[in-house]
Design a protein around this nucleic acid. Structure first.
Lengths: 343, 343
DNA sequence: AGAGGGCGATGAAACGTTTCGAAAATGATG
DNA sequence: CATCATTTTCGAAACGTTTCATCGCCCTCT
């Protein structure tokens, strides 16, 4: 900018005024300055600007795993929304690890991000402390956190799983295996509650041998399914509480020599693009990923636009049960499967 | 830092020296300063530091679509690598749009990223200009760009497709449909070449009615497949040059009332995690995503470590044909499919 | 014609660091 | 004890912006 000012024989203040439109500058000088900018190929240094202005027009986004298709989609939507608004997005993946998450959030705050969208991991206490003394707005995504009073976008997980399990019960299933992630994040807790309540509402017992825990990865789903399938009285259906784990479930079913849905029905949380072109077509709980991402972005953009003092807003969206042919009616002949399928 | 200095009754220079370890400071002062840092809860402002140092420890990463599983995986690996190295990653998605890409790269450069990893889009001329006068190292990912002489990591696309098409020919297929992305990015060109050469090597004609173009999205694959399937003499196999488009292919096959592999064989570029748990299990060309991501990260990290003058390095990795049951031997009875499957 | 008002341009301070040369303190040596 | 060498500390400039108070100019009004 100094060079531009010299070339145009004006002061840097005038150049700044022209670039930002913060004051009127006469046509003559404007032209000289614009010419100088072109000649020199001047680009404003956003770092210096950030330092002076105290804002970076950059936000931080941390998710557990970008390869989990739910997060892939949400990240994609959020990225687009902020791109439109002229913000850059710094992406971090915590790999479900608490320390990694803390480090990354600190890294982001050091870099003076203007805001944060966090799909948290692990215990909320440290997150709370970090967020409290960071002076930027934070939006919690997918996973809320008691004690951390801030904007959030979540799914009605309990209801969604309730509906899914009820669907299985309606099909005649009585022993329904359930594979959960660990309880220290809210959705896993709520989903489990939905499972339990659906069984109770149907007058069925909640048997602990039918509930297994994993750490969100494919291998965890595999192991859990192996255990369920080797039970003395094995379940006729399995519900997996996230998407990567259901891959493990399908592999376990294949490896043990069973097939879905003939021998065992499967449903899971989170839809994915391939779900209705391959067999079996998985019955899933589809999250409204587009809405989730956009709402999260909007909440943060609203804070960034200056609406700092509004009370925390918590948006709860509804999941949608996508009924396909991976769950068969129990007792009905196999040919009846087709009838239970809806597009 | 000023506050810390005052609290510890030293100069800011001393505080800086202690924090960065750039000079020895006596035990007495060290203790006072550290105490003050704790008391005040001081965090170094990375923006101010960047301005002074001329480095942000942040890199820019642009890909066409993060929802394309190939890019999802590569982004994930790259992100991890830079996270380990203490760098932040700014992610942009160009949506295969040239102008978006230009805007985003400019945005990143304005923010003084230390380096750039680009899976480019469209014409390379503008990219070249941007990269030339940006003074940061650039690594091209997946898609090279003649005229842009810089580090790059790509796949041997030609060979990979050659192998895949040859596999189809070996199975007895003679009319093989091919769905390509547009030619202005190098891999699509090379993949097409592989297709053509495989046919020629087998003494088969290259028929233009069997080659269709799309813009990388599912809907393009759908339309292209519809066209191929309504040909007077329809192909017995279809190869789709990327992953999102093959979903469209499968949907078109389903919608038209055919089934794979009984009526038509399908293979495609890019593997995905579900490929061997659902039916049909797609025969794919798997890219070594982990290696691609890590090599790209390493090339850039090496430049960032100071190795600026080394000549451009171009790494070419090999794809791997994953033979599954979505391609059936022509002429053989259906039962023979199982024999053509390898784990 | 002189005063006042509005507009356009500018100089300089500030944002929070790092760094360099100089000053001060310390220790060793004659 | 004076001198010198060495170590530790510090003041101030610089990074590239934005912003505010000021200044000069021209126009208008009495």
């Amino acid at each position: 900018m100094l060079h531009v000012a010299e070339a145009a024989r004006v002061s840097v203040a005038t150049v700044s005024a022209l670039i930002n439109g913060t004051a009127t500058v006469s046509p003559g000088l404007s032209q000289r300055i614009e010419q100088a900018i072109r000649d020199i190929g001047y680009k404003r240094n956003a770092i210096a600007r950030s330092l002076k202005m105290g804002t970076t027009r950059t936000i931080g986004l941390t998710v557990p795993h970008i390869t989990n298709p739910f997060f892939t989609d949400v990240v994609s939507v959020i990225q687009q929304a902020f791109d439109r608004a002229g913000y850059a997005v710094m992406l971090c993946c915590t790999d479900e690890d608490l320390n990694t998450q803390d480090d990354q959030i600190r890294l982001l705050l050091d870099r003076m991000v203007d805001g944060l969208i966090v799909a948290r991991v692990g215990d909320g206490a440290i997150l709370k402390r970090i967020v409290d003394d960071a002076n930027v707005p934070v939006v919690l995504l997918d996973r809320v956190c008691e004690g951390v009073d801030t904007d959030a976008v979540v799914l009605d997980n309990q209801r969604a799983v309730f509906d899914a399990i009820t669907h299985l019960i309606d099909l005649g299933h009585r022993r329904i295996g359930y594979i959960s992630g660990s309880f220290d994040i809210s959705p896993m807790h709520d989903r489990m509650t939905g499972y339990r309540e659906a069984l109770q509402a149907a007058g069925l017992p909640v048997e602990s041998e039918l509930v297994r825990f994993g750490n969100f990865h494919e291998v965890d789903g595999y192991n859990a399914t192996m255990q369920l399938l080797s039970l003395h009285d094995r379940p006729s259906a399995i519900f997996s509480a996230n998407n990567p784990m259901v891959i493990g479930t399908m592999k376990a079913i294949r490896d043990i020599g069973l097939s879905c849905p003939e021998d065992i029905s499967v449903a899971c949380f989170d839809d994915f693009p391939w779900s209705d072109v391959f067999q079996p077509q998985l019955t899933t709980v589809a999250q409204p990923v587009k809405a989730i991402g956009e709402q999260a972005a909007n909440l943060l953009l609203d804070r960034l636009a200056g609406n700092r003092d509004a009370p925390p807003r918590k948006l709860t969206l509804k999941g949608r049960l996508m009924i396909r042919n991976s769950c068969r009616p129990l007792g009905a002949p196999l040919g009846a499967i087709a009838q239970s399928v809806s597009a």
